[in-house]
Design a protein around this nucleic acid. Structure first.
Lengths: 227, 227
DNA sequence: CGCTTTTGTTTTGTATACAATCTATGTAGA
DNA sequence: TCTACATAGATTGTATACAAAACAAAAGCG
């Protein structure tokens, strides 16, 4: 989220870079993260690497087992469903509040983000849609006017990014997503908090056949050699 | 929450100890945490202390400004309300799920925790009530049968512990709290998810006169000399 | 007398060194 | 051939050392 530019510690930059690699799938769930290797690659010592890893572990992006090194967090299908269930509730809450508190300027921004998604959908460009979809959701977080909630939602959203990305590949998911967005926008702009909450909840939660889709895409993501 | 006993890193032990001091009010919001001082006190080098601080910063318990040291996180009244607003939603979600999914064994445990609170209330013992109240709420988290949700709720609960503690000192708060617990238990045991959610939400959220109470107790907590 | 600049001290951030523990390979025995 | 154990190697966790930045205080200047 838009923060005042604070000078980043080296370890924070490392953390962002490593997180990016996890999100983009370069580092896959279960993959081992060797401190020395990372240090060599980034041209620093192990100290800032360790600090970055500890931060990522706190955020749930990786797992650090004492004396046994760090691995990219691997969530079971059940666990993922649980996470999406919570994400759905947070999004619903954002939508409920946003419907009450959104400003005219934010209404315009939300519509802009929504229309941008439409362009990506029409171009049948999942990667573009993926990014614009994030902007769309973040605009809703912002419009909730609860900055803590927005931060929490954003953090969990980031944690789920690798899996969201996969889901967009599922047939017709992009079109379905867009029309759901439309209904969400309508509810928020008309001030219907409960409607927005309900639609966002269903938009995010993984259930029914989407669970099967998730499991199927997961096996493709999983790394074969955890060592 | 009950986890399999994993050998703790020294830095993790430090983190727990420092967190405990923050929660109990020994370290007050705004107070500076000097790495060398902590290292000397615990008889370790700065390295594990730093790692503990980074972890606490990730959890939001402290704030680390680059090159300017760490201070105990100090939340504004507005921020605190936002946090309680999210906590209320998470608790409501736990209650809603718990009403549907709670097992007979968990029902018994929940009742046990509730009756223990009754004893503390009758003894007019806020400290005891404070701890038993935590157990009561954690039982609900567990009964949601969404382990991720339970972890998130617990994490935020811990973050709000210093402030919850203060609130129990407010006149009659303990008795009010207990009778609210009673209604919550009734809803959960009767399988009324929406009722449980609604009652938990109101039980936790800070609004109306309780906001004034919170602000009043906050100024007592705030440290005078941030240096 | 107040403000700016400069110098000295403290504290953080990173690099390196070392000790403890875990993993893996190889060997001996059943 | 499989299992148990011992040893060697690799990797983590912690201590120490050093460099850079922030902070504090004193000196110089208007």
């Amino acid at each position: 989220m838009s923060e005042i530019a604070a000078p980043l510690r080296r370890s924070e930059q490392l953390g962002e870079e490593i997180e990016e690699r996890i999100v983009t799938g370069q580092y896959r769930p279960g993959m081992r993260l060797d401190e020395q290797d990372l240090a060599d690659e980034f041209g620093v010592s192990r100290t800032p690497v360790r600090e970055a890893l500890i931060h990522l572990a706190s955020a749930g992006m990786i797992e650090m087992r004492p004396r046994r090194g760090a691995i990219v967090a691997q969530a079971s299908p059940t666990r993922l469903c649980e996470m999406f269930e919570v994400m759905a509730e947070l999004e619903a809450m954002c939508g409920r509040l946003a419907a009450r508190r959104i400003t005219p300027a934010e209404q315009a921004e939300l519509l802009d983000a929504h229309r941008a998604c439409e362009v990506a959908r029409d171009a049948n460009d999942p990667d573009a849609y993926y990014h614009l979809n994030e902007v769309f959701h973040q605009r809703i977080y912002q419009a909730s006017h609860n900055s803590f909630l927005a931060e929490q939602a954003d953090a969990l959203h980031r944690r789920l990014r690798p899996y969201r990305r996969l889901q967009l590949r599922v047939r017709n998911r992009m079109k379905t997503s867009y029309s759901e967005h439309q209904a969400i926008v309508d509810s928020i702009l008309s001030g219907d908090g409960e409607g927005a909450a309900d639609k966002l909840q269903r938009h995010v939660v993984v259930q029914g056949e989407r669970f099967a889709d998730l499991v199927a895409s997961l096996s493709a993501l999983q790394v074969q050699n955890p060592a």
